[in-house]
Design a protein around this nucleic acid. Structure first.
Lengths: 129, 129
DNA sequence: CTGAATCCTCGTTGATACTG
DNA sequence: CAGTATCAACGAGGATTCAG
C-alpha cells in the first residue's frame, strides 16, 4: 500500500476504532463522505444533499476532510466560482466503512417509508460494485 | 429479524450513515463497544481499558449506550458492588461496523510499534470468528 | 457561487469532592 | 467498587453579514 497515511489532526488515539472515528468527527463528515462516494460534487450540490447543515459548517467540515487527506478540493478559476469536491484515493479506502455504517443504519434504525423511498438502499448496493 | 430497533435518542437523521454515527456519538462509545465485543466487562475493567476517559464520562456514555439498547447493565446486589456491562443482541449486530472501523484505523492511521504491539490486530482477527 | 469574518449560545466535558 | 453532585471552562455549531 503506497497511499499516504491519514493525518491525525487531533490527539493521538489509544485505539484504532477511536482513530477512525476521529476522522468522522463533527456531525457531518460521515454523511459528506457518503455522498461523495457517488462521485464529485460541487459545493452547492452538497448543500442540497445536506438540508440541515449550515453553510459555515459545511465549509468547515470539508476543510477538515481535506486536511485529513480524505477529500480533495479543486477550484476552477471561472466566474462564477466553481469548486468541486471528491474523494482522494485514501478517501475511497473508507468506502467499506461508510457502507457498513449505512447498512447498519438502514437495517436497525430506519423504518419510515419516506426514508426507504429515498433510495438509500439502491444507492448503497450500487456502490458495492 | 426480531431484534428491537435501535432507539433514536436525538433528532431523526436524514441519512442512514448519520443515523449509525449518532449511536457512536460522544468520544468514547465506539471504543467502549470495541472492548465489549470481547466479552462482559465490569466498570473498573472498562476504565482500565480506556486510560484517558474520566469516570464521569464513562458512566455517561455507558448510560447512553444502554438507553440506545446496544449495551446491557447488570447490577449484582453484593458488597462491594459489582456491575457488569455487555453487548445486547442488538449491540452485537454492530460488530461488522466496529470491525470495519478498527481495520481502517489499523491500516491507515496506526503506525507506531507501540500501538501494533498492543495486540489490536490479533484481537480484531480473533473476533472475526 | 463559494466562501470568510464575527458574534454568541448552549451543550459537552473535565476537575473535584462526596456516598452507599 | 461504582457511582452522584456540583462547578467551571471550552469549543462546536448557529445566525448573520460581508466579499471576490
Amino acid at each position: 500500500m503506497s497511499l499516504p497515511r491519514a493525518k491525525l489532526v487531533k490527539n493521538f488515539p489509544g485505539c484504532p476504532v477511536e482513530a477512525t472515528l476521529s476522522f468522522l468527527d463533527g456531525k457531518w463528515k460521515g454523511v459528506i463522505l457518503f455522498h461523495l462516494m457517488q462521485g464529485t460534487l460541487r459545493f452547492n450540490e452538497l448543500r442540497r444533499k445536506l438540508p440541515a447543515v449550515t453553510q459555515r459548517m459545511l465549509t468547515k467540515q470539508l476543510r477538515e476532510l481535506e486536511e485529513s487527506g480524505l477529500v480533495s478540493r479543486t477550484v476552477y478559476p471561472v466566474v462564477p466560482p466553481r469548486v468541486e469536491y471528491k474523494m482522494t484515493p485514501l478517501g475511497t479506502t473508507l468506502k467499506p466503512v461508510i457502507l457498513a455504517l449505512a447498512a447498519w443504519g438502514e437495517e436497525h434504525v430506519f423504518c419510515s417509508p419516506e426514508a426507504a423511498s429515498e433510495g438509500f438502499e439502491a444507492c448503497a448496493t450500487a456502490l458495492q460494485s
